[in-house]
């Protein structure tokens, strides 16, 4: 009897309708993108960027470990030797990330032995030209400068860097060159002689 009643009057449908229409009075959860945007957590794995030391010096030494760690091999690093200030340095002459291949796993950031890479919350970089999606060194540094705070936040959130800027305590530095040292010495001697 009850069953008949229910099936005749569609009670379960009406109940459902009541519940659904009840949601007219609940705060909506939908965001009207692009007018509204979600706030992203610090951990968000967005576009990659390159970072500099506070002195403005490039962190990246072109060790290519990011490429070795990359599961999709989307990073290309070309390194070269650079000699200035009596120090022979290694630096990346070109650093390209193919964003069309990138899977945003963040392994490169984890691998980087100098924390030169960071991930930002930048996700809106669609373009009509696919070639623009190969981010070169200049572009990566540009992103790094623009979203420096985000990248730092990412590194801290992912335990890549201490919050208390202990970065200056890095033990790593390039050795000075003996040739240069001697030249310097000679210069000094020459000046003394002169």
């Amino acid at each position: 009897m009850n069953k008949l009643f229910h099936s005749a009057f569609f009670t379960e449908i009406l109940k459902a309708l009541r519940m659904v229409f009840g949601h007219y009075f609940v705060k909506e959860v939908t965001l009207q993108y692009p007018h509204e945007k979600n706030t992203l957590p610090d951990t968000h794995r967005g576009a990659l960027c390159l970072l500099r030391y506070e002195s403005g010096e490039e962190r990246c030494v072109g060790c290519d470990l990011c490429n070795a760690a990359c599961p999709s091999y989307c990073i290309t690093v070309v390194s070269a030797v650079e000699e200035n200030d009596h120090v022979v340095r290694r630096f990346a002459t070109s650093f390209d990330i193919d964003m069309t291949k990138c899977v945003f796993c963040g392994f490169c950031v984890e691998a980087c032995p100098v924390n030169a890479l960071g991930m930002t919350k930048m996700y809106e970089y669609s373009t009509s030209n696919k070639r623009d999606l190969v981010f070169d060194k200049a572009k990566l540094y540009e992103i790094g400068e623009k979203w420096h705070g985000q990248a730092k936040g990412y590194l801290i959130a992912h335990n890549q860097e201490g919050e208390d800027e202990t970065v200056s305590e890095y033990r790593y530095r390039f050795p000075s060159s003996r040739k240069q040292e001697e030249e310097q010495k000679e210069e000094v001697e020459a000046q003394v002689d002169g």
Partner: peptide, 21 residues
């Protein structure tokens, strides 16, 4: 413990660099 040797790189030769560190 760790202690760096602090030896400058010998870059005088035309072919080989000696990094004694």
């Amino acid at each position: 413990e760790a202690k760096r040797k602090e030896i400058p790189e010998d870059t005088r030769s035309i072919v080989l660099d000696f990094n004694m560190e």
